[in-house]
C-alpha cells in the first residue's frame, strides 16, 4: 500500500506543480517574446484541460487511498467519516473542489483572467501535509512550506512549459514571433528558475533547521537511502540545468535561433525527466518512516 501511495502522491504533487508552473510561465515568462498573456493561455487551453482533468482523477485516487489507509476499511460510511470529520478529509475535499473550479475556468476560456486561483493549490498540500501537524510555529511552517511548493512549481512546471514552447517554436512559421524569441524566453525563464531554486534552498534549509536533521538515518535506513537518491538526482539536475546558461545561451546567434531552441529543448527534456524522478522519490519519502 505504501508503494502505491508513494507513487500516487508523487504524481499528484508533480502534476499540480506542472499546472501552476505552466500558468506562471504563461503569465510572466512567455510575454518576453512579445506574446500576450491571453494568447498564451488560449494556445495551451487543451493541455490545461487535459492536465487539470488528470489532476482531478489522481487527487481523487489519492484521497480515496489515504482515506482507506486511515480507516483500515473500504466501508463507505467509515470513508465518509474520514472525509467529513478529519483535517485531511476537509482539506482533501477543498482541494478536489478547487481543481473542479480550475477545470471549469479552463473550459469557459477564462484562464488568462483567473489563472491565479491555482496559487491556492499548493496551500492545500501545505495544509494537509507535515507542516500542519507540528505544534509550535504552525503559521511559519505553513508559510515556508507554501513558498517552497510554489518555487518548486515555478521550476518544474516552467521546465515542462518551456519544453512545449520550444517545440512549438521549432515548428512555427519564422515570422510568427521575433527572430530572437527563444533567447528572450529562455533568458527570462533562467531568471525565474534561479530565483526559485534559491527559494527552494532557503526555505528547505529553514524548515530543516526548525525541525532538526537526523544525518545518522541517511545510510542506515531505506528512507535515508531514498534521501540520498533524491540528493544525487538533484545534483545531477543542477549540473544539467547549468548547461543552458553556461553553454547554449552564450553560443546563441541570430542566424542559429532554431539550433539554439533544439539544443535547449534537449537539455530541458533531460532536466524534466530528472525532476520527475525527484518527485516520485519525494512522494515515497513522505510515506516512509525514517
Amino acid at each position: 500500500m505504501n508503494t502505491i501511495l508513494g507513487i500516487v502522491h508523487g504524481l499528484d504533487y508533480l502534476l499540480c506543480s506542472w499546472l501552476l508552473g505552466m500558468f506562471i510561465f504563461h503569465a510572466g515568462i512567455a510575454s518576453a517574446a512579445g506574446e500576450t498573456v491571453s494568447s498564451c493561455f488560449n494556445r495551451s487551453r487543451k493541455l490545461s484541460v487535459v492536465l487539470t482533468s488528470t489532476i482531478f482523477l489522481v487527487s481523487l485516487i489519492w484521497f480515496i487511498l489515504v482515506a482507506v489507509e486511515m480507516a483500515e476499511s473500504w466501508n463507505s460510511s467509515v470513508l465518509f467519516s474520514v472525509a467529513t470529520s478529519t483535517h485531511f478529509g476537509h482539506i482533501g475535499l477543498c482541494k478536489i473542489g478547487l481543481i473542479l473550479v480550475i477545470l471549469t475556468i479552463a473550459l469557459i476560456k477564462k484562464l488568462s483572467q483567473f489563472w491565479w486561483i491555482t496559487l491556492i493549490l499548493p496551500l492545500c498540500f501545505s495544509l494537509s501535509g507535515h507542516a500542519s501537524t507540528v505544534q509550535t510555529g504552525t503559521a511559519i511552517n505553513l508559510i515556508l512550506d507554501y513558498i517552497h511548493l510554489v518555487a518548486v512549481s515555478i521550476w518544474t512546471g516552467g521546465l515542462m512549459t518551456l519544453l512545449f514552447w520550444l517545440k512549438t517554436r521549432l515548428h512555427s512559421t519564422p515570422n510568427s514571433l521575433p527572430a530572437n524569441a527563444s533567447i528572450l524566453v529562455v533568458t527570462r525563464f533562467s531568471h525565474f528558475a534561479m530565483a526559485s531554486t534559491a527559494l527552494i534552498g532557503v526555505t528547505g534549509l529553514a524548515m530543516a533547521l526548525r525541525y532538526g536533521v537526523d544525518f545518522a538515518s541517511l545510510v542506515s535506513t531505506e528512507y535515508g537511502k531514498l534521501v540520498l537518491t533524491k540528493f544525487g538526482l538533484f545534483i545531477l539536475t543542477l549540473s544539467v540545468a547549468s548547461i543552458n546558461p553556461f553553454i547554449h545561451m552564450k553560443r546563441w546567434r541570430p542566424d542559429r535561433e532554431m539550433e539554439f531552441a533544439r539544443n535547449v529543448a534537449r537539455t530541458v527534456l533531460v532536466e524534466l525527466v530528472m525532476v520527475s524522478c525527484i518527485f516520485i522519490v519525494a512522494g515515497f519519502l513522505t510515506r516512509l518512516s525514517p
Binding site: 507535515h130 507542516a131 501537524t133 507540528v134 527552494i200 534552498g201 528547505g204 534549509l205 524548515m207 530543516a208 533547521l209 525541525y211 532538526g212 536533521v213 537526523d214 544525518f215 538515518s217 541517511l218 528512507y223 535515508g224 534521501v227 533524491k230 540528493f231 538533484f234 545534483i235 519525494a282 519519502l285 513522505t286 516512509l288 518512516s289 525514517p290
Partner: peptide, 17 residues
C-alpha cells in the same frame, strides 16, 4: 551541509511519535 539540509526536511517532518 547546505544541500543536505535543503533536501532533508522530510526526514524529521515525516511522522508523529
Amino acid at each position: 551541509v547546505f544541500l543536505m539540509l535543503t533536501l532533508c526536511p522530510a526526514i524529521t517532518l515525516a511522522h508523529i511519535d
